[in-house]
Design a protein around this nucleic acid. Sequence first.
DNA 1: CAAATAGTGTCTCTAAGACAATATCAC
DNA 2: GTGATATTGTCTTAGAGACACTATTTG
Lengths: 273, 273
Amino acid sequence: MDPEVEYLSGYRLENYERPSVAADIVVLTIRTSKPESFRKEPESKLSLLLVRRGVHPYKDHWALPGGFLRNGETVEQCALRETQEETSVTPAALMNVGVFSEPGRDPRGWIISNAFVSIVGSTEIGQRKKSDASDARWFDVSFEQDEKGEYRLTLTSEDERLNASLRKEKSRFGMTSFVIRDSGSLAFDHAAIIARALTALRGRVREFELVFDFLPEKFTLTELQTVQETVMNVSVVPANFRRKAAGLVEETDEYTEGAGHRPARLFRKKQIQ
Amino acid sequence: MDPEVEYLSGYRLENYERPSVAADIVVLTIRTSKPESFRKEPESKLSLLLVRRGVHPYKDHWALPGGFLRNGETVEQCALRETQEETSVTPAALMNVGVFSEPGRDPRGWIISNAFVSIVGSTEIGQRKKSDASDARWFDVSFEQDEKGEYRLTLTSEDERLNASLRKEKSRFGMTSFVIRDSGSLAFDHAAIIARALTALRGRVREFELVFDFLPEKFTLTELQTVQETVMNVSVVPANFRRKAAGLVEETDEYTEGAGHRPARLFRKKQIQ
DNA sequence: CAAATAGTGTCTCTAAGACAATATCAC
DNA sequence: GTGATATTGTCTTAGAGACACTATTTG
């Protein structure tokens, strides 16, 4: 018998204690409210999907969608599957933002979680079917640093407002990590997961890697600019934005219609990089 | 009885199948060879620590140092512990570069691995004690894209040369991932882990986040430039490098001595960011 | 025509790259 | 002095930010 085969047949992974492994997904989209006047463009807001937990622990608290890794799938596939189960859409982007393994982060026991950002295009949002979860809802996101250097994460839905507060770790070690000072009644360490996810997202959007995933295939440059501004929480002047975006998009022959102002050319993402 | 406490006491994580979770560490340092002339500066090379496996599977193949996650520690602590056990030094930096969970990546069974980059300062390298592992060795690293767009990873020690070949995944999803075309006889999927780690490292070094970790507390600007050039595999003109580095370092009153040329001022990393 | 967005041109400032010139040590 | 690295200065160019101006549509 081949010594390697023989060795493996006698090997028992079960002899060692193992954690449960989960994936939690920060599902984001951009929602627009109705405009004030027939001419004005609607306001855009970055929104996050939370589900209300129906079981202990953290029963009735808001939490990120997520679930356990199954044998035979990668953590990326697990995140994709869970996102689809919760939102009924295929996300345009799915980005790993690290692992959370602090002992005690989950009262059920030894559970480590891989965190992901998932971006849902704004075209699909209207068609979203009823979620698996008993109660899933979109929250407007605000994530800013206050005077004292602390980070405030505010999540707002029609009738609820969650206020979390975090401190950034000195974290010389690459990926920035956050310490929760006030979870804002979010379940588990999900406030920290959301904070890290938003930080990672902003990094990618600054480099234009992920902006397009928030938009349909064809879009105006103003729409693209709005996404960038909404996610990054900044505002830039159109002329400069157009120059920067010029190298990344290509023209189509189509234009918008019916807005109370000059029509805009539609663009698409340039394919060759 | 509190319903949450009651629920948790009846909860059994063991009812679900779980993977084993490991950490693998890409330990890097910069080594210098002896100079050709008493005036010339020695050549610097990026080096990677590998251990020869003493057991199946992949017995006698070279592999990354690493080990299994223990209950009560984070994956970062696990990586730090394993690095110390293997190299007997405390790394200056430890950066998470993602999780590898492809089914079948480990013949022993369902094992997912968190990958880390660990940087060992060049002062400590000489004092490194004999490693735990039966046979640990430093390999010079070369990682480049060839004409056809494939990535070649070449690891060279005194009497061995490992040649791996990889293809970059289209990977719209944030972290770039590599597919192994030829593992170069490295164990498991470690060629892909090394490739991703080097890509992530170069990103951080470009932003000057991690350059300093390769150096002692005080260093000359030429040394800093050499690290940057060695890791990024580029060469820049000193004048421009100095300007860029100026904002990140502060002068000391000390100078180098005994080199066959003009002494250089020593700098240290500027503290306030 | 009025309101609003679409799109262009241009000025300034800064940072990066290239290159030349000078400084200073150990042998 | 010679060989080597250390350090400074300057020219050019590319890109970002600011701002003014023109273009076009619909009610």
